[in-house]
Amino acid sequence: MRTWLHRQTFRPDITVVVFFGVVAVFFYGSILWTGYMSLTRSTLIPNYNFAGFDQYIRLFTNQRWLVSCLNMVIFGVLYIVGTLAFGTLLSVFADRRIRAESLFRTIFLYPLAVSLIVTGLSWRWVLDPVNGLQGLVRGMGWESFTFDWLTDPDRAIYTLVIAGIWHSAGLIMVIILAGLRGVDDDLWKAIRMEGIPLWRAYLQVIFPGMRPVVTSCVVLLMSDVIRGYDLVIAMTKGGPGIATEMPAKFAVDYYFARVNLGLASAASISMLVLSLLLLAPYFYSEFRRRM
C-alpha cells in the first residue's frame, strides 16, 4: 500500500479522501452531533449532559409532533401514489406518438423549475376561499358552491397534495418516459406477435420490466415528503391550527423559533431514522447490484 501510494503520480485518491472527508464531517459528523444532542437536556443553549431518551419520550408525547407525523403519512401516501399515477399516465400517453409532444412536455414539466415557495403561494391564491376558485364559481351564480379545503382543518392537507402533485408529476413523467423510450423495439414486436392488448402489455410486461425506474421514482418522492418544508411554509404555514404541520417544519421551528435544541434534534433524528428505514431496501438492492 505504502509503495503504491509513493509510486503514483496519478492520484485520484487524494481527491477522494478530501471529498470523503468533507462528506464525513458535514454529513455524518453532523448527524452524530445531532444524535448526541438529542440525548441531552439541551434547550436554548447546548447542554451536553446525557439525559437518555428523555427528549424522545417528550417528542412522542407531543401532540404537535404526532399530528405532524400523521400528516406526513397522509400527505406522503397521497402525494406518492397520486404523482406516480398521474405522471405514469402522462408518460404513457406521451409515448403514443401524440402531436405536439414537446409542447405538452414543456407544459407538464415547467412546474419543476418553479420553486416550492412560488408553487405554494400560487396554489394558496388559487384555492383561496374568498378570492380563489370558490369565490369565482359563486360569482358565476352557483351560490352554494364550496371549495374551502385550504381553510378546512380536515382537508387542508389535501391542498398540499394537489400542489405537490402539480409540482412533481412532470418529473415522474419524464423519468418514466425515458424508461419507456428505452424499451427494446423487439419487446413491443413480441407483444404484437402475441396479440397482447395494450393495457395488459403495460401493466404486465412493460412496467414490471421497469421496476428499477419506478423504484427510483418512489425513492425521489419519498425524500421529497420527508424533507417537505417549503411547500407547507408557503401554502399553509402549518395551519389552520396545526392541521398541516410536518416533521420537517417541527424540527426547524424547534431549532430556530422555539429554541429547544434537544427536542428538535430528537425530531431530526427520528426523521432520519424513518427515511433510512424507508430507503433501506432500496439501498440494499443497489449495494448488492454493485458488488
Binding site: 423487439d186 413480441a190 404484437r192 396479440g195 404486465q204 410486461v205 414490471p208 421496476r211
Partner: peptide, 29 residues
C-alpha cells in the same frame, strides 16, 4: 394484425417479458 397471421417469431434480442418467469413467458400469449 401480426397475432392473427398464425406466425411465431424469435427476436435478435430475445424480447422476453422481463418481469415474468420462464413459465409465464411461455404461457402468457
Amino acid at each position: 394484425e401480426p397475432s392473427q397471421r398464425g406466425l411465431a417469431m424469435v427476436f435478435q434480442s430475445y424480447a422476453l417479458f422481463p418481469a415474468m418467469t420462464v413459465r409465464r413467458n411461455l404461457s402468457f400469449g
